[in-house]
Design a binder for these strands. Structure first.
Lengths: 270, 270
DNA sequence: CTCCGAATCTCATTTATTGAGATTTTGGCT
DNA sequence: AGCCAAAATCTCAATAAATGAGATTCGGAG
């Protein structure tokens, strides 16, 4: 609206209606929720259906459509981070019973892209696609602490209240200082900031530039781990993240396109 | 363009650039491929980034963004077909070494939504998100044969050449007749129509209405199966599809929203 | 600090989007 | 099979938004 693509934003607002709580909508529900006129909403829906973003479900219901699944497929196939990270989180999960996560950093969002569970009774669930809190926990701080100064300050300002609540400091500068300190200690550790009784151990992964692109994290039941175990795990996580960073740099320069393990495509039924 | 949402279609055409072959684009590449002016393209990209459909990757590269992953997550969480179908394809995979697929039917597209591999050396690969050919193989015919007359004729016309090539008949009516015959034989069987040496056995799954919403399919190495085995497998597939149809009808009426097995969300790091 | 390419802004011009109401299509009934 | 109400689409004048050339600013490398 504000930027010369207002109509598109209105159209795509339709897609924002779909949530875990309400994954199916009728045109009339959309009209009354969004306040669009009938012809307009139908136009939008028709266009989104044509492009595969919406699909009919039953006589009058609408759900998200096949394009969504296809695009996610495409991302999984072509995401170097995911290809390189899969084996790494599997290794991590073998170190100690836990949930090992690979979390990608989008400028304003943390999103789990892969998870491996080795704990017998996992306390937490972060499958691919689950958004993660931006201002709490080891994962978040692993990003913040390793951001270039400028971006770090931006994010601190944006999330000031949460960060102060966790006790990192009472001013923007104090928090920045505190975060910068944490760079030096290797993996970031948080005790029960998100889930009580669960320890998070996280380390950043870097692409070519100096900005972090992802975080490796192990979440572990506190009871299963003593001090010595924690420092061993912490070293493992840090090390794994460093290896992953290394791998990313390699595949960037030589192979050009990432090699997909399973590429006999276009086949599969008879 | 033709329908009152032209500008939106132009914007979303940007997303269509991203393919398996080319998952990363720069603004300049987009400009020369799409023929948009510089300010326009930058406006589009900015909007798509704001909405999470695109994300920066490196200094100038763009890739698909986090919204895509989130939306797919949402679909996986709320898809009754997927929730009910998971166990079913696992059962099927246990019957005989194979790849068992659950394929959803969107009015113009077949898309694999879940797969279970039990063959030791699978010949085919159809992970979630892989689009499937619309006019070949047992899956396709399991849909076509069970479509209401009107839609069946539409689809036959649209795919006439392919269907004739497979030998179903030489006229629209002949093909329709042939397909209608196949309704009576239980599961649909195809020999090497897509992958030589691989047999496909498929059966339709129905939602409340009479139109099929999905297909269950087993793809099996021909050598591992004799005539008797094939008819046993065929009965199993048909049966499994019937059970799945049944389950869908049940969950539709009572539970209202599908129960998700693993719903301790908002948690997972520390 | 300076420079160069990348990204954004400005604003007159062009073009598409919008919605009330009429109209057609669909699919739920007997 | 055929009807009826609800859903979806169409028409078209009024309204508002998208467009792009060129100037400008931003931001990172040296």
């Amino acid at each position: 609206m504000t930027s010369g693509v207002g109509s598109t934003e209105k159209v795509l607002r339709v897609l924002e209606l779909f949530t875990e709580e309400r994954p199916e909508w009728t045109p009339d529900e959309m009209i009354s929720t969004l306040g669009y006129s009938r012809p307009t909403l139908y136009r939008y829906v028709k266009a989104l259906k044509n492009m595969g973003f919406l699909a009919a479900n039953g006589p009058h219901g609408l759900t998200l459509g096949p394009r969504v699944v296809e695009m996610d497929f495409l991302m999984r196939k072509s995401d170097r981070l995911l290809a390189a990270g899969g084996p790494v989180i599997r290794q991590l999960a073998a170190v100690h019973p836990c949930t090992a996560l690979l979390v990608r950093w989008y400028d304003n969002k943390l999103l789990c892209v892969a998870a491996e569970v080795s704990a017998s009774n996992p306390r937490s669930s972060y499958p691919r696609g689950r958004p993660m809190p931006l201002a709490r926990g080891a994962i978040s701080r692993a990003i913040l602490a390793h951001l270039p100064r400028k971006q770090m300050l931006e994010k601190i300002v944006e999330n000031f209240d949460d960060l102060r609540a966790v006790g990192l400091g009472d001013s923007v500068d104090a928090i920045a200082e505190c975060l910068r300190q944490q760079r030096k200690g290797g993996a970031l550790i948080a005790h029960g900031e998100v889930t009580p009784g669960v320890i998070g151990v996280a380390a950043p992964v870097f692409d070519d530039s100096r900005a972090p692109v992802a975080v490796l994290c192990m979440t572990i039941e506190r009871e299963t781990l003593d001090e010595a175990g924690l420092s061993r795990v912490s070293a493992e996580v840090w090390d794994a993240a460093a290896r992953l960073t290394e791998t990313l740099h390699e595949t960037r320069s030589d192979g050009e396109r990432p090699e997909n393990e399973n590429d006999n495509r276009g086949t599969g039924k008879t």
